[in-house]
Computed example of a mutant assay.
Amino acid sequence: MTLLSPEQIAAQKANVDAFFGVAGKIFEGFEKLVALNVQTVRATLAETQESMAKVPDTTEPPQWFASQAGFTGPFAEKSLSYSKQVFEIASTTQAEVTQLAQAHYERYNDRLQALIEQTAKHAPTGSEAAVAAWKSAIATTTTLYETLQKTGQQAVQFAGSNLDVVTATASKAVQSNGEKAPIATGAKR
């Protein structure tokens, strides 16, 4: 029967804590997304009901088309707002998960460094090259991890700035189309 050392038990506990920390952050993001979707569905149903209530009041096709055209501008703006909120939830969740993963990685890296130092102290003479190779491999892995993390953060920032530009451009287009749209008066010809 093999018993785990206190260090192994601590490492196991850290791994379990890290797993549940990440799972909790992902679940929080999912909860926010569900809440946003419920809010969006409720608002859409209320607006649809309001729109349908106005349909019997329209007696001529131009009136009906004019009333429907009045909903496309707000719909487009709300769609853009919804997309932006989804992106914010996703990027916030991603940042929180990345932060937890980073902390876990740093703890793991520190334990690995300590293990290599301990092994180097008890290593036989002539094994300095092997120890140096291990240290070099760890340093390379750490550099790669940091580079990937920075690249991921830059990609999220780039996507966020692109979403802001698209949202602003689309919002201006919707506003200008709303100003240009002819208003039907319902007068008979």
Rank of each mutant, 00 (worst) to 15 (best):
T2I: 14
L4K: 07
L4I: 01
A10K: 13
Q12L: 14
Q12T: 03
F19Q: 10
F20R: 08
V22R: 03
A23N: 05
G24A: 14
F27K: 11
F30D: 04
K32Q: 13
K32L: 11
A35Y: 01
A35G: 04
L36N: 00
L36C: 04
N37M: 09
V38G: 00
Q39F: 01
Q39E: 15
T40F: 07
T40Y: 09
V41A: 12
R42M: 15
T44S: 05
T44G: 02
L45P: 00
L45C: 06
L45R: 05
T48A: 11
E50Y: 03
E50K: 13
S51E: 08
M52W: 03
K54G: 04
P56R: 06
D57N: 08
T58M: 15
T59H: 14
E60H: 05
F65C: 04
T72Y: 10
T72S: 09
P74K: 01
P74H: 01
A76S: 02
A76Y: 00
E77D: 08
E77S: 08
K78C: 03
S79H: 04
L80H: 00
Y82A: 09
K84Y: 07
V86S: 03
E88I: 02
A90Q: 07
A90C: 10
T92I: 02
T93A: 05
Q94C: 06
Q94K: 06
A95F: 09
A95Y: 03
E96M: 02
E96R: 01
T98I: 10
T98W: 04
Q99M: 14
Q99A: 15
A101G: 05
A103I: 07
Y105G: 03
E106I: 10
R107Y: 03
N109K: 13
D110V: 12
D110W: 07
D110T: 13
D110G: 06
D110N: 13
L112E: 03
Q113M: 06
L115P: 00
I116A: 01
T119Y: 11
K121I: 09
K121Y: 06
P124W: 08
G126A: 12
G126L: 11
S127F: 15
E128C: 05
A130M: 14
V131E: 03
A132W: 13
A132I: 10
A133F: 04
A133K: 10
A133W: 02
W134C: 06
K135A: 01
K135L: 05
K135W: 01
I138C: 06
A139Q: 14
A139S: 11
T142D: 15
T143R: 14
L144D: 03
Y145I: 12
L148F: 07
L148M: 14
Q149Y: 03
K150L: 12
T151F: 14
Q153K: 08
Q154T: 10
V156D: 02
V156S: 02
Q157M: 06
Q157D: 14
A159W: 06
A159E: 08
S161L: 12
S161T: 11
N162S: 13
L163N: 05
D164L: 10
T169S: 15
A170I: 07
K172D: 11
K172L: 14
A173Y: 05
A173G: 11
V174W: 02
S176P: 00
N177S: 13
N177Y: 13
G178Q: 15
E179T: 06
P182A: 12
I183K: 07
I183Y: 01
I183M: 04
A184H: 05
T185G: 08
